[in-house]
């Protein structure tokens, strides 16, 4: 288990980016750095880094994040994109390391529909539990190693074969939707 502690010394974006490229090289594609501005002068006050990776490299990438700081997990977002389900893991590095030091890291993974299984990160970051359960019930992705895979936001009597955010046959049908006036 990783040490549950926030790093008080931040690494710069350049250091993070160069070690990312050095370690993963071709394994990752589409690394996008966004400077987010604030204040009267519209100065860049922090960065968000969006990384697309393959499903099999996700765990290694998360381990890589741990080598900098405990990656504080925000949420997982996702969508049905046709033959795959897209999952975005939203993390923060250096959130306790000083003013303007936080780096938002988003890991985007496409999970093919014929094998909707991801490794669970619950052992490393227990705070991920609700998000993994939510993606399980809403998009039908199961997480290997997640102890509790029961419904979290859907009603007790919900048909677990129906995944509300899917855009294919397993999504909602008109009988599930109640239109108000």
């Amino acid at each position: 288990m990783h040490k549950a502690m926030l790093n008080v010394v931040a690494k710069s974006l350049e250091e993070f980016k160069s070690s990312l490229e050095k370690k993963f090289g071709d394994k990752i594609h589409n690394v996008e750095v966004r400077g987010r501005v604030a204040g009267k002068q519209d100065e860049v006050s922090f960065y968000d880094v969006w990384i697309s990776c393959r499903k099999d490299d996700l765990e290694e990438l998360v381990e890589f994040l741990f080598s900098f700081d405990f990656p504080i997990f925000h949420v997982m977002s996702g969508d049905d994109i046709g033959n795959a389900v897209l999952l975005n893991y939203h993390f923060s590095l250096f959130s306790g390391a000083g003013r303007g030091k936080r780096i938002g890291v988003v890991l985007s993974v496409e999970v093919p529909k014929e094998d909707l299984v991801m490794p669970s990160l619950y052992d490393k970051i227990p705070g991920i539990e609700y998000s993994e359960r939510e993606m399980h019930e809403m998009l039908g992705v199961s997480f290997n190693g997640l102890p509790n895979q029961s419904l979290v936001f859907l009603p007790e009597n919900w048909d677990e074969k129906v995944h509300p955010w899917r855009r294919d046959d397993s999504g909602l049908s008109p009988k599930h939707i109640r239109e108000l006036s």
């Binding site: 926030l6 008080v8 204040g39 922090f46 303007g100």
Partner: peptide, 18 residues
């Protein structure tokens, strides 16, 4: 935990404020 998004990643006018 010494964390506060207004401090660790300033947005809006927090960019000008400590």
């Amino acid at each position: 935990l010494r964390t506060d998004l207004r401090w660790s990643s300033p947005y809006e006018a927090y960019g000008d404020l400590e």
